[in-house]
Structure formats: structure tokens, C-alpha cells
């Protein structure tokens, strides 16, 4: 899926909120970022530094107080509907069966129901949800819910994917399994990914490039290019290269928090 764009650029993006007491909270301050088409970029930073805010701005759910967002080189003012977004919690609709949750993006685009299902079924089969297509969301385990939520985001075929701590609420084993799974899916769809995580080793395992954010107001203060070969398997975490990248990032995080 080349030649369909997927370049994402942020220029001087800043955001401020006024909280209930009338206090002005600076959430983001001058964030610059460039993700090339098909690149997997991870964003790590302390809690509350504005990571979710950044993704919401890119998705178009919020407009920044300053700066601009560019998609494929053009300033994108009204961005809703341009990027695929996966919120911090899965947000599956309880009254839709798994397959109908996955196809909702297509449905909103006006794809007829039958056609949408035809497109979704092979995807669900191939990525481990085949036997759950007719289930209600409550019947799924946490890991399966995340797969469904991810496929729902991926199926729309948007060239930029924004994932907000997609594995945050999962136990270690399920998490490792899903990280591998995510890489498998990503290799096939080839989208540009901007993924937020708390977890340094997750960032190194998944990403081509890891960006470190400072505490509030969030800025990007360090960057680590991950040179590990792809396709990656979980075993890569035992290599010295992995350990070194992880150690450098932890150090960068420490410095960012201390500064």
C-alpha cells in the first residue's frame, strides 16, 4: 500500500486548558514532529504530560492553541475523519456484535452493511477474531476486545493511525502477545503509526523511532532511532542492541523529569 501518503507533521503545536478554578494549564508547548509515510513512531513521557492531548489534536478532536498539523504536506484544519484513532479505552459499542463494531467506520462512510461485512470477515479471520464475529463485546476477553478495537480502527484504511496506550490495561502476557500481533497487522496495512505508551520496552519493540516528552507543558526532548531489524519477534528484547536503546531512553526520561 505505497503511494497513498501518510506523512504527518506537527509544527509548533501548543495547547492550553482552563481548568474549573479558572487556572490556565499549559498542556503542550511547541511540539514539532515529522513522521514519514509508513513509519512507526512511539511517544513516551510521564503521566499527564499531554500525550493524549497531542493525539486528540492530530485526530482533529481538539484544535491547538498555537501551531499547525500537516497531513501529506498540507495544513489540515478540519481533520476529523482523516486519521484513524484508537482511544485509551476501547470504546466498543455494547449493542453491536463484534463484526458490526469493526465495520462501523465503513458504515459511517456509507458502505452498505453487507459489503462492509464482506470486507471485515477475512480481516477478523486472519487476525484471530474469526470465532467471535457474532459475539457481543461483553463476551470477549480484554485482549480480544483490544484486537476488535484495533481492527475497527485499521479497517477504514486511513494512512495515519493514532493509538493511545492501546495495551495499557492488559496483563503482561496478553500485552506481549498483542504487541506481536500489532506488528503483524501493521506490516500488512503499512500505515504511519503514532503510538503513545508508558512502557519503554514496548516503545522500543514496536517503533522505528521513539520520542520522549517532558513533563507538562509537554515538549519533545529526546529521540531514539531503533535500528532493530524487522520483522521483529519478542526474542529481540534479549539482544544487547535492544537493552542499549532501552537504557538510553530510560536515561532520557529521567533527565526530562528531573529538569
Amino acid at each position: 500500500m505505497s503511494g497513498r501518503g501518510g506523512e504527518l507533521e506537527l509544527r509548533g503545536v501548543a495547547q492550553t486548558f482552563t481548568d474549573r478554578g479558572g487556572q490556565v494549564v499549559e498542556a503542550l508547548e511547541g511540539v514539532d514532529l515529522l513522521a514519514r509515510p509508513g513509519e512507526f513512531v512511539a511517544l513516551i513521557g510521564p503521566s499527564g504530560c499531554g500525550k493524549s492531548t497531542l493525539l486528540r489534536i492530530v485526530a482533529g478532536l481538539e484544535q491547538p492553541a498555537a501551531g499547525e498539523v500537516l497531513l501529506d504536506g498540507a495544513v489540515a484544519g478540519d481533520r476529523l475523519g482523516r486519521c484513524a484513532f484508537m482511544p485509551q479505552r476501547d470504546g466498543l459499542l455494547p449493542w453491536r456484535r463484534v463484526i458490526d463494531n469493526v465495520t462501523i467506520g465503513l458504515e459511517l462512510e456509507g458502505v452498505p452493511r453487507e459489503q462492509a461485512r464482506e470486507r471485515a470477515l477475512p480481516l477478523l479471520e486472519r487476525f484471530g477474531l474469526g470465532e467471535f464475529t457474532g459475539s457481543w463485546p461483553w463476551q470477549l476477553s480484554g485482549g480480544m476486545r483490544h484486537r476488535a478495537a484495533f481492527l475497527r480502527t485499521a479497517i477504514t484504511g486511513r494512512p495515519v493511525m493514532l493509538l493511545d496506550e492501546p495495551f495499557g490495561a492488559l496483563d503482561g502476557i496478553t500485552r506481549a502477545e498483542l504487541q506481536q500481533w500489532l506488528l503483524d497487522v501493521w506490516r500488512e496495512i503499512g500505515a504511519t503509526v503514532l503510538l503513545v505508551t508508558h512502557d519503554v520496552s514496548e516503545a522500543v519493540f514496536l517503533a522505528d523511532r521513539v520520542l520522549v516528552m517532558s513533563p507538562r507543558p509537554g515538549r519533545i526532548v529526546a529521540e531514539e532511532r531503533v535500528a532493530l531489524a524487522r520483522p521483529r519477534e519478542l526474542r529481540v528484547e534479549e539482544t544487547p542492541e535492544f537493552g542499549a536503546a532501552e537504557a538510553r531512553l530510560r536515561e532520557a526520561l529521567r533527565r526530562a523529569v528531573a529538569a
Binding site: R56, A59, G60, L61, L80, F85, P87, G91
Partner: peptide, 14 residues
């Protein structure tokens, strides 16, 4: 209504 579901559908252009 779940605000996450609302946000999600909005990003899908709803």
C-alpha cells in the same frame, strides 16, 4: 453515553 465511543466515531467522520 461513553465519551470515548463518541470521540472515536467523530474521528471516523460521524
Amino acid at each position: 453515553s461513553d465519551p470515548d465511543s463518541m470521540d472515536l466515531l467523530r474521528t471516523m467522520g460521524a
